Simulated scan of single mutants.
Amino acid sequence: MRAFFTFIFILLLCNLYRAQKHSSNSFINGEDVSETQMSWSEESKEPEPQLDIWEELRNLRDLVAAQGAELRLLSAKLTASDSLVQNLKEEVTVMKIRLTTAESLIGEMQMEVEAQAAELTVTQQKLSFVQERLLVTIAQVEELQGQQEDQSLALQELQNTNNVSKVAFSASLLVTGEGNTLHVDFATLVFRNVYTNIGNHYSPITGYFTAPVRGVYYFRFTGHQTSDRYSLMLRLVKNEHPIILSGDRFCQDDREDSVSNGVVLYLEIRDVVAIQLGGEVWDDNYHRTTFSGFLLFGL
């Protein structure tokens, strides 16, 4: 601002100097040269511009006023800028505080994550140890289960061995009454009149004996014939395979006859034995047709 007024002052001095010089030039060697200038000016027809100091001052005043208004506007803008800068500085300070707090929080979180990672590592190690022990325990359990199964099998075999001497059955064909039973093709005879069935291994419903244990068994069957139409053939089968057979043909001179047979068999567990008939066989209250068997010894 001071430099601006200094510039205005210098400009005024220059204008005053020009005015004074112009007055002094009007008298040269004690003569008035105004007429000479006027004549020269008229001859050249180029009038010299006249300076109006008051106009210059008014212009300068207006310029100074405009510059002052602009300066005040710039001062207001500067003040607003200073306020904005101050606000920005305060916001930057707040952001720095927040950033510092966030960095501190991040550091704490990193430390917590590292602690959790270390704890997780320890937990994983413990889990691996527990898994190893679990695998060992599972192996031990499987081993114990195998031992238990072996013991169960041994116990079953022991029970079967204890029941070896308790396997025996005997049955006849008809429960009551008398008459012939006819099977043209070989079919299983069902001996329904059960005398003895220790262990219940013979079925009076199907006619099959089922071996409860592996061992050696003795079987015997008898059959009686009174038919004048068909012959009598009885055969013992093991798992549907014929083993032994006995039979008799019809004869006018000998209308009644009996047949029998017996065999010792080696049987596995769940092997089945039955009697099959081809022809006619008789049974009555005397129970002439029978099927019997029992275990000799187990293996």
Rank of each mutant, 00 (worst) to 15 (best):
M1P: 04
R2A: 04
F5M: 06
L11R: 09
K21H: 06
H22S: 14
S23G: 02
S26T: 10
I28E: 02
S34E: 14
E46Q: 12
E46D: 08
E48V: 09
L51H: 15
E56T: 03
R58Q: 15
N59C: 05
D62I: 13
Q67L: 08
Q67K: 04
Q67G: 01
E70V: 11
L71P: 00
L78I: 12
A80T: 11
L84R: 14
V85P: 00
V92Y: 12
V92P: 00
I97S: 14
L99C: 07
L99G: 08
T101F: 11
T101E: 15
E103N: 11
G107D: 13
E112D: 13
V113H: 09
A117G: 05
V122L: 15
T123R: 14
T123W: 10
Q124W: 02
K126N: 03
S128P: 00
V130D: 08
V130G: 01
E132T: 05
L135S: 13
L135W: 02
I138S: 12
V141K: 08
E143A: 15
L144P: 00
L144V: 07
Q151H: 10
L155H: 06
Q156H: 07
L158H: 14
N162D: 04
V164M: 07
S170A: 15
S172V: 01
L173N: 03
V175D: 09
T181C: 05
V184K: 09
D185C: 00
D185P: 00
L189A: 07
F191A: 02
R192Q: 15
I198T: 11
G199Q: 02
P204K: 15
P204G: 08
I205W: 10
T206C: 10
F209V: 04
V213Q: 13
R214Q: 13
V216R: 13
R220S: 14
H224M: 04
R229A: 07
R229I: 13
R229Q: 12
L234Y: 03
R235L: 07
R235Q: 12
N239T: 05
F250V: 08
D253V: 04
D254T: 08
R255P: 04
S258A: 13
S260K: 01
N261Q: 04
L267C: 14
A274Y: 01
G279R: 00
V281T: 03
V281R: 00
D283V: 05
D284T: 02
D284L: 00
F291W: 10
G298E: 08
